[in-house]
Design a protein around this nucleic acid. Structure first.
Lengths: 186, 186
DNA sequence: CCATGTGAAGATCTTCACAGCG
DNA sequence: CGCTGTGAAGATCTTCACATGG
């Protein structure tokens, strides 16, 4: 699927997007056409304009505030990671239930007690949360989040969280991804 | 999909598996039937036996050795996390290219220079790797891994890695998961 | 002539309905 | 009678082929 670049910076064709992403060009065109007619026939897609439109559609032309629960290794890594902010996600507070951790700092962020979370979430109107607690506490944390108004949860605990269907949950289980790799090892 | 437990410990029905996992019972039966006839009609699936068979099919009745490249926040979190070992994945070595980090320890594991990786991988016959380096270095690391015999890569760098098709790559881009949540926020 | 946009064909995945067996 | 296993139906996703317009 190699193609020539004929109009660098201004436009990009579906076949070149395919080269970059690995997604085939039919799929790219179909997917884009689902949201509108962004391209010009014979030319391709105007890069700047397309990016702007997609950002609007995906609501990523704005920043989103989050809270994180679970100041363990993984939670700490996320707090220190700069990449989220670059993509528009700001972790505003961290909560834990371990009294030895409360008040400690990760970077310049103080760890708060989980009991403060409900009030915090409601006052700041935050609707997204990340769960990085052990599996045994994850359901309890999710329930707390949901009752405090959280609408979307990114869950790293290896457990299937029960939740009302209007709440969005994305699970990331790293061990499952490794297991998938093992399975496909011919 | 609530059901009664009628033979605790010994057998489990697809509908009860459904309650637990959230996957519907038709899907569970179809998927299992793809690998064999594990159940008994009118009874359900024998728990112990089913677990053993699935572990064998998924090759998770054995442990797998891994290396990790990128001793940053995320890499460090994984090294400290006990959950992988419990699921049969052992990180045997960590590599980085930052001279200030080489020789330092994370837990009881010494950080090695990336230049040592090829020799290490070949001598230990390790075929799985985890990439937790910044996006700009990820392709280079992947190429190194692949030329040293790695067959499966779990990649956390937010970039599409080019690779021969016989190499398995699983990507985890946490910001994409957050973006997915935002998009589905009604 | 080039590359999009899209109806139609094809492939795959999910759900259903029920025969079959303990 | 209960619950699996599975062919068939239904839904969805992917690929193709080509008409269309710059």
């Amino acid at each position: 699927m190699e193609t020539k670049i004929n109009n660098p910076l201004l436009t990009i064709s579906s076949s070149r997007l395919s080269d970059i992403t690995g997604i085939n060009p039919y799929q790219i065109r179909k997917d884009l056409s689902y949201f509108g007619e962004f391209g010009k026939r014979g030319i391709g897609y105007p890069v700047i304009e397309l990016a702007a439109q997609l950002k609007e559609i995906l609501k990523s032309n704005q920043t989103w505030n989050l809270v994180l629960v679970g100041a363990g290794n993984l939670g700490t890594a996320f707090l220190r990671y700069r990449g989220f902010a670059r993509r528009g996600f700001i972790i505003k507070a961290v909560f834990d239930n371990d009294n030895r951790k409360i008040g400690q700092k990760i970077g310049n962020m103080r760890i708060r007690h989980i009991q403060e979370m409900e009030k915090y979430l409601k006052s700041k109107k935050i609707i997204m949360g990340i769960i990085t607690v052990p599996a045994r506490s994850a359901q309890e944390v999710a329930d707390l989040m949901i009752s405090a108004g959280i609408k979307s949860i990114l869950n790293f605990a290896p457990i299937n969280l029960k939740h009302p269907q209007e709440i969005m949950i994305q699970n990331i289980d790293i061990a499952i991804e490794l297991e998938r790799l093992v399975y496909y090892l011919s």
